[in-house]
Simulated assay, not measured.
Amino acid sequence: MEPSSPVLAAYSYCEAVTGLQARNFAYGIRLLPADKRRAMSALYAFSRRVDDIGDGELAPDAKLARLEQTREVLALVRAGEVTEDDTDPVAVALGHAATVFPIPLEGLDELIDGVLADVRGEEYETWDDLKVYCRCVAGAIGRLSLGVFGTVPGARDAGRAPEYADTLGLALQLTNILRDVREDADNGRTYLPAEDLAKFGCSAGFHGPVPPAGSDFAGLVHFEVRRARALFAEGFRLLPMLDRRSGACVAAMAGIYHRLLGRIAADPGAILRGRVSLPGREKAYVAVRGLTGYDARQTARGRRP
């Protein structure tokens, strides 16, 4: 049944937020049918709100308070206490989406936990430590999205679908961390594991276009790229479990980041000189390939898209 006019208006707001602020994400979800596209936009808009608090200009104590207020809104959504005439369109849309799809909303609590770690300035000694953070801010999004996508009846190993969705989220997040290493350093943040930085002589950090003196920066980048590629290879096992359009959506979003990872591997120093990205025409190309099923078949076999 088509949502009511107030709910459709709330979804339209979320879709506008997604279109303006999530170019890579938007390339993928435009491949979905309307009900799934709306639900994914609601998830994105709520997640964007959480991220914006963490990245904003408020003092740390104010950020912590705002994040806890956002958690309270999420609790109301989970309890079904947000009505369609509520003044918060993101809460209205998310609440409706949760009645249509089996979305594990606790994943959004994990996202809040991850952003709280950012606000507190937590750093990570080992990859195992960083994985906990990545699962909060990205793996959880993969599991939330799977609640919208669902799996096809009779899919082999469908019980492992949440695991693969989580792992694919880790792959995307590690790619993000590599891409943003200079920007994060300028903002006083370090995400790469301290033991990895020490191994390659990069403990001094990244505050300019030139790697730390005497470091093996390229070696560090290639080490992390191999880790990310292994995560992609594992996470892409999710694709055959999804219907055609959901699989196309995932193949498009993940394929964009997979290609981005390839660019970083080809020129590690580029991430210190500026923001590495794909042109719009290449993103569109990946999306079209995903819709035809080509990228889904290739990536599910562990091949580079």
Rank of each mutant, 00 (worst) to 15 (best):
S145I: 01
L105F: 10
G114F: 00
L172F: 13
A287S: 13
A218R: 10
P209T: 15
V181C: 06
L231F: 13
A266D: 12
L291M: 13
A198S: 12
G274L: 05
A97Q: 11
A254V: 04
M40T: 03
V148M: 07
Q21L: 12
R30P: 00
F217A: 11
I112D: 01
V288E: 00
L58F: 08
L31W: 00
R120T: 02
P60Y: 06
G201C: 10
F217K: 11
L272T: 08
G139L: 07
Q21V: 03
A228D: 03
E57L: 08
R49V: 13
T175N: 03
F236H: 15
T292S: 14
L64I: 05
A248H: 01
T87G: 00
D88M: 03
Y133P: 01
P33N: 10
L20H: 10
P212I: 09
A230E: 15
D243F: 14
A287R: 03
T83R: 15
G280L: 11
T190G: 14
L116I: 14
L116Y: 02
R135W: 12
G262A: 08
L20S: 13
F232L: 10
A98R: 11
P33S: 08
R49E: 14
L111M: 15
A39Q: 01
A75D: 14
V50H: 05
E68M: 07
V17G: 01
G150Q: 09
H258C: 13
A34T: 13
S215V: 04
D109T: 10
R273Y: 02
D51M: 09
K36S: 12
A300C: 10
G262P: 01
L67M: 07
Y11R: 02
G255R: 07
R304W: 05
T83K: 12
K199P: 00
A228I: 09
V115K: 01
S246E: 06
V119T: 04
D267T: 14
L111D: 01
P279I: 04
Q298K: 15
F236T: 05
R23M: 09
G56F: 14
R135S: 14
D243Y: 13
A16C: 02
A98G: 02
D55I: 09
L94S: 10
S215F: 08
E84P: 00
E195L: 11
F200A: 04
V276A: 09
G114S: 11
Y164M: 11
A140W: 04
S5H: 06
C249F: 12
P279G: 05
Q21K: 15
G219S: 07
G201L: 13
L58Q: 13
L8C: 07
D243T: 07
D52K: 07
S277R: 10
G219F: 07
R120S: 03
F217I: 11
A117Y: 05
